[in-house]
Amino acid sequence: MAAKAIEVSGLHKSYGSHEAVRGVDLVVDEGDVFALLGPNGAGKTTTVEILEGHRHRSSGTVSVLDHDPGKGEPTYKQRIGIVLQETGVERYLTVAEAVDLYRGYYPNPLGVDEVIEIVGLTDKRDERIVKLSGGQQRRLDVAVGLAGDPDLLFLDEPTTGFDPSARRGAWEMIRNLKSLGKTVLLTTHYMDEAQALADRVAIIAAGKIIAEGPPDGLLQTADTITTIRFVKPSAELPPAISYRTTETGFCEISTSEPVAILNELTGWAIQNSVDLAGLSVARPTLEDVYLQLVRASEKGKDQ
């Protein structure tokens, strides 16, 4: 069994009368990429900031790398790297100088050029930070978070605002981090990102974890629906198949029993020589599961 990088139980955090986090339990194995998902205001950022040591918890136990982050010990901060949104860096330094400045805070940092290469900024090594593009600044954020050679890296929405190719580049970078043996706690609004990168995901809504597991596991356990689609044939479909017609002239069938429905549909099509043009079967994505779970949790809250 892998050692635990993060162990949280019964975590609560209140701001005045507002309870932002209400009983979060969380375990992250060492060396995993763990994605924390959830709508804005669900308590995601608060939870992560408690783990980082930026916030104090109201109650519960938190252990990160065998430290209590609430104590604000430099020995804890030496082992983590934090990449937040909206955190600036000394703008008049160059990329290499900024990495050098921050690596100087740690006892066993990585080399300047090593870090710059990991995030793919070697071409911009001696460029002033003010002159970097948004995507390059985000890479620099990661470089600065990585400079101290942390065992655990917090990445807060690392690809928000990226164009598709920059996102793929960032994913490659995060996979690099994993291959270096780092534990990564990632928050993101992109479900494909979580699906592509995370070993495990947790969905947080209204201050509680409502689902947790490997992305594929979540897809299987959730009560989700497969969608079958094809161009509406001229012949009448068998009455046992219920479908809806889209504005673009497609038939769409939503079912939790895709195998039986497909069997009936294709059998009927072959018998009647009907060509099911554009036939596609879409399994639910993590996004579908996410939306379903979050909606269900919101309904539960209203009742």
Binding site: G53, H54, I80, I82, L84, T87, G88, V89, Y106, V144
Partner: peptide, 10 residues
């Protein structure tokens, strides 16, 4: 956010 970033370091 420069100071917040510093706060996250040792």
């Amino acid at each position: 956010g420069v100071l917040k970033r510093k706060r996250g370091t040792p």
